[in-house]
Amino acid sequence: MKNENIIQYIYGIADNALILGQRLSELCGHGPNLETDIALTNMALDLLGQTRSYYQYAAQLSGDEKTEDDIAFLRIERQYKNVLLVEQPNRHFGYVITRQFFYDVFHLLLLQELQNSNDDTLSAIAKKGIKEVSYHQRFSSDWMKRLGDGTEESHQKAQEAVDDLWKFTDELFHMTKDDELAFESGIGIDVSKLKEHYYKRIGEVLEEATLTIPETKWFQKGGKQGIHSEHMGYLLSDLQYMQRTYPNMKW
C-alpha cells in the first residue's frame, strides 16, 4: 500500500477527532455549569491529543518537511475527510450530547478493531484511545439518559437532536477507496461491519433514555469525500485563521 493511501486513511479517522475536538472547545467557558464545562473540555483534549498522534504519524509518512500543523490547518475544505456528523454545530446541549454519543459509540467500536492493525503505530494510538473513548461513551450515554428521561423539556430537546442528527449516522459505515485499500492490506478495518453492533448499542441507550429511534431511511453523506455541510467553512475559518493570515511563521 502506498504511503499516500495510508495518509488518506489516517485523515479519514483523525479529521473526525480534530473537528469534534474543535466543536467541543467552542464550549469551553459556556457549559451549563462548571463541572460539566470541565468534563467537556477533557473530552476535547483527549480528541485533540489523538489528532496530534495521527497527524504526526501522517506527517512522518509523507516524508517531506510536513508537520502536524500543516495537516491540521493548511488543507482546503475538500481535503478534510471527517464525517458530516462531527461538524454539526452546538445548537444546544442536547445536540452536543447526542452528537457526542452518536460518535462515541462508533469511535469505540472503530478503535477496538483498529488496535489489531498490522501497523504498529496505528495499533498503539488505538490502544491508548480506547481508554479515553470508553469514558467518553460512558459520559455521553449517561447524559443521553438524563436528558431523555429527565424533564419534559429536556426530553423534547434530546428527541429533537436525535431526530436531526440521525441522518448523519449511516455515513460512519461507508467504505471509501482508501478504506478498502487499508483493509485489504491489514492496516485498516472494515467499518461497514460495525454497523449492526452500533445500532444495537445506540438502540439500547435510546430506549433506556425513553427516546424514539427516527424512522427515516434517508441519510446524508459526503464528508468522507470532502463534500461538507455549509457549517464546515465557518469552522475552518476559525481553525485556520492564524495560519492563513500569517503564513510560514512559528508559534
Binding site: G29, H30, G31, P32, N33, T36, H92, F93, K145, R146, L147, D149, G150, T151, E153, S154, K157
Partner: peptide, 16 residues
C-alpha cells in the same frame, strides 16, 4: 447566558 441556557440541563439531571 451560559447559566440561563444551562437551566433545563441542570433540571433534567435532577429530575432524572
Amino acid at each position: 447566558n451560559a447559566w440561563e441556557e444551562g437551566e433545563w440541563v441542570r433540571d433534567a439531571a435532577m429530575a432524572y
